[in-house]
């Protein structure tokens, strides 16, 4: 697992209160990890803070799973 993926996992565990084992690449924040739409907005904000970047709204809308978040961040974090 990449360093980015590990940090993403820790944020999700912290914010959503789920077990690390549940945070698989396929896991959907809302369908699998119990997040509601506000939790998802908060997660995106946490990613922005942790990785010091800004995720535009139209990009954020495409981030629904753990894997999508990791992929976006691996591509955009400098």
């Amino acid at each position: 697992m990449s360093a980015i993926a590990e940090r993403v996992k820790q944020i999700i565990v912290e914010k959503l209160g789920v077990e690390e084992s549940e945070v698989t690449p396929e896991a959907n924040f809302q369908n699998d990890l119990g997040a509601d739409s506000l939790d998802t907005v908060e997660l995106i904000m946490e990613f922005e803070k942790e990785f010091n970047l800004s995720i535009p709204d139209d990009q954020a809308e495409n981030i629904g799973t753990v894997g999508q978040a990791v992929a976006y961040l691996e591509e955009n974090v400098k």
Partner: peptide, 9 residues
């Protein structure tokens, strides 16, 4: 402006 989505509620 990076307000938390839970701020208002």
């Amino acid at each position: 402006p990076r307000f938390n989505p839970f701020f208002i509620p």
